[in-house]
Design a binder for these strands. Structure first.
Lengths: 233, 233
DNA sequence: ACAATATTCCAATATTCTTTATAATATTTG
DNA sequence: CAAATATTATAAAGAATATTGGAATATTGT
């Protein structure tokens, strides 16, 4: 086995141990960029939409200089890119693979870390949840047969960019005042920004409290698309 | 951290900021566990097979106490588990999602980080590569029609645990001495432990040097299985 | 050109992580 | 029960990261 790691490279190239170590260092650099709660928060926000630094500061509640430093780390790891727009600098996700990696990270964390597992069990399991590709495919069939009503709880802009087929936009803030627009004859499925989205929790609780038969789709629109299911844009 | 466990449930005032922060801290803890070259090396080794600490020390070349400390970090992040076996303590991957996350991390790194991209371009592109699910499916069809010969370059034990359909075992160390067993009438596809495996590079170069029409499958057996393709066990 | 704005850069401090040597623990062997 | 073995735990030094306030930079608007 150790032979494999000490093979000479082709005609005077770097020895393979050095290549291997350089690879691991690179992978670690990317992992390191993910290894801070604020940076994960930033990536989460940027997954919804691109944002100028100011917005990110406001959303995360961290110091301006601190957010700027974190963004630098993310930029140097190639996870985000920035462009100037007037006096603003607008950040966005650099590659489609980034949200996908973060999704894997979150999913694994919910399995591997007892503290997260407990958190999910206590806060996300007081209602019926639709999760996994199989369940999503079944849901799609139900949607197409008009057997249920799909409610998108995200802000209007995100809804407009892409949403589930036949979904109707009820941003969480408006939901309480617009319940009369939601018919009571069909079961309701609400979704928001993904399996850990807290807005989705509140929306489902609100609907359940108002007597609806409500479930939560524990997938983001991105997850839905990655599962190969259709979106409306 | 114990604060996290005392958040009032949905009945009380829901301090969703605290839940959110607790989630991000958990995710960051898992990411942090990945954020060191030695730990990524350890996870890579454990993905091939479970190992006692001694073996891991030997393979990584790090100090014993250092490896032990890294293993502790991985254990506390829920990524590996350990069991005692006599006087040895044997480590293994704790969840099937772990190799999958690492695969995503590596893949993204190869896209996002210029230094890795360069490394891959200079060291892994002197021969034809088969990568991606589509190409793998085509390869499977070719294998099933006996249009090519598949060579597994990993150690015997790993071959025996699982390998591609019709693959033949030629551990890299033996390959040079056993070339006469490989017919020259068909193109050869060699694979080893994944897209960054250095042994696979050596094997393909050796075959090319011996006049074979050789390509490299840039997937691990695990990747192959995750793509939904069949394995022989 | 000057003031206002948005962001990055810098330097100092505090914090966390890594390594190393050494001590402690648990298991097997004699 | 003592010695040998494999591993973990501890403590101290050194390295890397994170935070903060303030200075520097680049752009826009007057």
């Amino acid at each position: 086995m150790s032979d494999l790691l000490h093979i000479p490279g082709p005609r005077g190239a770097a020895p393979s141990v050095e290549i291997r170590d350089a690879l691991f260092e690179g992978f670690a650099k990317v992992a390191q960029a993910l290894a801070h709660p604020t940076r994960l928060h930033l990536l989460g926000l940027l997954d919804y939409a691109e944002h100028p630094v100011e917005k990110l500061v406001e959303q995360t509640g961290a110091q301006f200089a601190s957010v700027s430093a974190h963004l630098k780390v993310l930029r140097e790891a190639g996870l985000v890119r920035s462009r100037r727009e007037g006096r603003r600098i607008v950040y966005s996700i650099a590659h489609a693979e980034v949200p996908s990696l973060i999704h894997s990270l979150r999913q694994l964390s919910a399995i591997a870390l007892p503290e997260i597992r407990l958190l999910v069990e206590t806060h996300y399991r007081d209602h019926e949840v639709i999760e996994g590709v199989d369940a999503a495919e079944k849901l799609l069939a139900q949607i197409q047969r008009s057997r249920c009503l799909v409610i998108d709880l995200r802000p209007h802009e995100e809804f407009q960019r892409a949403h589930l087929p036949r979904a109707r936009s009820f941003p969480l803030q408006e939901l309480g005042d617009r319940l009369h627009e939601i018919p009571r004859d069909k079961p309701v499925v609400a979704y928001c920004r993904g399996p850990f989205c807290l807005a989705a929790l509140r929306g489902v609780r609100l609907l359940l409290g108002a007597g609806y038969q409500a479930r939560r789709l524990a997938m983001s629109v991105g997850d839905w698309a990655r599962a190969g299911l259709p979106l409306k844009t």
